[in-house]
Design a protein around this nucleic acid. Structure first.
Lengths: 133, 133
DNA sequence: CCGGATCCGTTTCGATACTG
DNA sequence: CAGTATCGAAACGGATCCGG
């Protein structure tokens, strides 16, 4: 399957591919907030993405310059994905989404993460970003 | 058409209905940042949503308690949509998304909006929220 | 006019099974 | 481990119709 193409010519179509798609959003969450790196790690998330969908979204994100794909240093048939600078810049967005979800989701969210974020927003985001420096 | 149901049982499925759907996100952008209120205004956006899709998403957002639907004071056969408290709380998220889009989208974004936002983030968000107080 | 509802052809998604 | 192939299900868009 080919990577999804933008479905609109408006200036923000670029953005809708990421924030207007469930699976893309989950991949970025796992990559940026949960420290996941490999295909199998993304696949293991509770939301249960299908393999072809995951392949498609990763390809699209590479295409958009949001992540890069590298061969694992210790296993030649394993790939690792890393955020680019524009990928790292999504961290504040994901943090805001998480805070909103924690506030209103009936099931709540991980207080271990949102606790520090609420108290020291800028510092917590900076710390997250630093991981990818 | 019935309103879309959550496609996952994870605690954040609630959030994915909004940030994981292209049309929902566009409706909230128009409602919160562009001051749109009515069906026909949402329909007129550049992205070109179909009437049945718009109906479905508005219904879903009402269902989730993110917006409310009211009869227009000056036209009994016209409806207006307003954000609830949890809808207003999406403003920071949309602002972050917009800032990111402006930074990286090839076509850029409206400087009139992102200019003040970059310089005085909290104040600009507070001002936007105040509109719905 | 406004806000939908409904039908329908087409596209896209996504779960599963299978493969390099 | 990291994907492809297949195929049924769902979403989409467009047009059209309807009630107020």
């Amino acid at each position: 399957m080919k990577a999804a193409q933008p479905r609109s010519t408006c200036p923000i179509s670029f953005m809708l591919d990421i924030f207007g798609d469930r699976w893309t959003l989950l991949v970025m969450r796992d990559l940026l907030l949960n420290g996941k790196r490999s295909f199998s790690e993304f696949l293991a998330s509770d939301e249960g993405v299908a393999t072809n969908i995951l392949t498609d979204r990763l390809e699209m994100l590479v295409d958009r310059g949001v992540i890069v794909k590298d061969v694992s240093p210790d296993n030649k048939s394993k790939f690792l994905y890393y955020p680019t600078a524009r990928g790292v810049d999504l961290i504040p967005v994901l943090c805001e989404i998480t805070l909103w979800a924690e506030k209103y989701s009936p099931a709540g969210a991980s207080k271990a993460f949102t606790g520090p974020l609420k108290k020291q927003r800028q510092q917590t985001i900076a710390k997250l970003k630093k991981k990818f420096g």
